[in-house]
Design a protein around this nucleic acid. Structure first.
Lengths: 193, 193
DNA sequence: GCTTAAATTGACGCAGCGTCATGGGCCGCT
DNA sequence: AGCGGCCCATGACGCTGCGTCAATTTAAGC
């Protein structure tokens, strides 16, 4: 009945199942206790598995956390990329990027309440993509030329910080407007309709 | 003859000395091992004191870290405040604020390489001050009216993210220029002299 | 069915945590 | 100076979580 051949053999199947069980338990435990308080034991206790098994899949709770973050990054990156790719004006480029990000944050709330910047592979790749897209947009005249590195940093700074406001309940569209106007015209320019 | 009643008696003296000894050891240990790896034991081992003594002064390594952060925040806040207070134009307001912050970061490098946002009292107070100053500046027409909450968030986002670039060796003045131009005129406006 | 490789299990030694009874030294008072 | 009381430093103690590993179960191939 199982038409999905990705992990057909019995062994491979339970293996990826176990991995998923652990990740799911970790999601739950982190949400409940917070990353700092949670222990590896808490995670496996929320699981039918034994303590030793955990270490067959992850080296530490940090690594599980990274894996969860990577899943998120992997989910949001295509959306951001596409949003930027389809833009034909600077306005669209910036607005679409912010909107996609804030929308994702609003619906998922981020993996945890704990607030630290993770330099996990997928996240870094996301930054790299953003920078590439910015450079490409500058090259084809969509964005005015500027220091791409600094602009990337500034953009992510604004995005992550305003994301907190979104998590606190701010309206996605309003924050998107604000961020876009700020990036495009600075504080001195009245918002465009 | 003792005009300063704060630590006159012998007892009070060694008490504040011990506190300082612990903080100093913590600075060292955090710098060496990083916050995540360091343990309370590592800190007291770098000290002539006994393990129990630590807990007379701090509840956990998190609290020592907070104390260190608070020291930094307490050091930088007046500089920022003054920078903003003496500004007579929007340009000055923003530039002075960024410059003071980046300069501080460049000279101190932050307490640790670990990168998480601390909601410690002094840090939060710093954000509150920034917001107050922004609102005041808007009220007296120095800055155009805007959502102060979002603007504060965006400003801190840009500041903290660009601070990383400064730590990585970017020139303070260049980054300050960039941040100021971005905040004032957005990406479309050529830099003012 | 039988062998072999792979993966699970939980007990084990170890390290760090936070506490607490003990003891020493500082303070104020006589 | 001598004395009693009171902080506070001390480090041993019990406890919890960590990561490992030999024993055992389970799937795969023959």
């Amino acid at each position: 009945m199982d038409a999905k051949p990705s992990a057909s053999s019995r062994r491979e199947l339970t293996k990826s199942q176990n991995r998923e069980i652990i990740l799911e338990a970790a999601r739950l435990v982190f949400a409940q206790l917070g990353f700092a308080t949670a222990t590896v034991r808490d995670i496996i206790r929320a699981t039918p598995l034994a303590s030793g098994t955990f270490y067959n899949y992850f080296k530490s709770k940090e690594q599980v956390y990274q894996a969860l973050r990577d899943e998120e990054a992997l989910a949001v990156r295509p959306r951001l990329r596409q949003a930027r790719a389809t833009a034909t004006t600077a306005q669209e480029f910036v607005a679409a990027n912010f909107r996609a990000f804030f929308w994702f944050v609003a619906e998922k709330g981020g993996t945890g309440g704990d607030r630290f910047r993770l330099d996990s592979p997928e996240v870094l790749a996301g930054f790299a993509e953003l920078r590439e897209d910015i450079e490409r947009a500058m090259a084809r005249g969509l964005l005015p030329p500027n220091d791409a590195g600094l602009l990337t940093a500034a953009l992510t700074g604004v995005a992550f910080e305003l994301a907190e406001e979104v998590k606190r309940g701010a309206e996605v569209e309003k924050v998107t407007q604000f961020a876009t106007d700020l990036l495009l015209g600075g504080i001195g320019v009245p918002p465009k309709t």
